[in-house]
Amino acid sequence: MATTLSTRPRARTAPRRRKPINWGRVGSWTVLAFFILLTVVPFLWMIRTALSSNHSLAANSSNLLPADFSWGALKRVFGLQSQQDALAEGGSGAAVNFLLYLRNSLIVSTLITVAQVFFSSLAAYAFARLQWPGRDKVFSIFLGTLLVPPIFTALPNFLLIKNLGLLNTLLGIALPTMLMTPFAIFFLRQFFLGMSREVEEAAMLDGAKHLRIFFQIVLPNAVGPLATLGLLTFIAAWNDYFWPLLVGQTEASRVLTVGLGVFKSQSPQGAPDWSGLMAATLIAALPILILFLAFGKKVVNSIGFSGIK
C-alpha cells in the first residue's frame, strides 16, 4: 500500500503561469509559511532553552538566542553535575539519570521493533500466500482487534504482566507488542499480496520449501516495506507513555517519556528548572529527529490510508 501510494503518477492540471502576480498563490504560500513557522518555532525554542542557564531565563525571556549560554542543563539531566551545582543552577537536586532512561528506551524500542516486524512478517506471509482452511476468517478476527482501544486491554495486560513477575522490567514493557500488532500484519500482508509470485513459484518447482523461500526470496524482496514498518514501529514504541507508565515505575526500568514526567514533577514548584526540562525533552526528541533527517522521505510517503493506526 505504501509503495503504491508513493509511486502513483502525479498527473495534475498545470497551474497557469502567465499572470505576473498570482494573488491566490501568494496567499496560499503565506498561509503555508505561517503553519511551517508555527511548526518549527517550538523546536527552536526547546533547543534555545536547553542551552540557556536557568537563572538567566527570566531576565531574557523574549531573547531569541540562548540566555547566558551553558551546557549545564544537559550535564544536569545526564547526571554529570554535582548536586550542589545542580541546586545552584536551579535544578531540583534529585538524582536524575537520563543516560539510563535513554538506554532503556533504546532497548525497549529495539526489542519491540525487531521482534514485532519479524513475527508479523511471518504471520502476514501465512495470511497472504499460504493455503490453509479458515485463513481469511482468522485474519478478520486479528484485524478486529484494531477496534479495541488500548486503554481497554491495558488494565488486564497490567495484571498479566504482574502475574508473570515482569512488573518494572524492560521485557514487561516490550512484551505485549513484541509478537504482533494488527496494524503490522495488515501492512505487510498488503505488500505480500501485491508481490509477484513468479520467483516464488520457480523456486517451488526447484523443490525449495516455504521456510527457505520465505527467508531467501520473500524477505530480501520486502526490505523496503519492512524498513518502513520498522521505522513506524520504532517511533511508536519510543513515544509511548501510558503503558510504560503502568509497567515501568522503578528508576531502573524507566523509559525516557516516563522519566520526563518524573523530572517535571520533581522540578521546584515556584521556579521550575526550565532549562533542565528542555534539555531532557531535547534528549527524548533527538533520536527521532535524527531518524527523521535520515529517513524522513520514507515516513512521509508511508502516510496514506495504510498509515492509519
Binding site: Y241, W274, F292
Partner: peptide
C-alpha cells in the same frame, strides 16, 4: 513523530 509527552513539555514551557 515526536512523543506526546515531549510536545506537552515544550508547550507547557512556552
Amino acid at each position: 513523530l515526536i512523543a506526546n509527552v515531549v510536545v506537552a513539555m515544550v508547550w507547557f514551557w512556552m
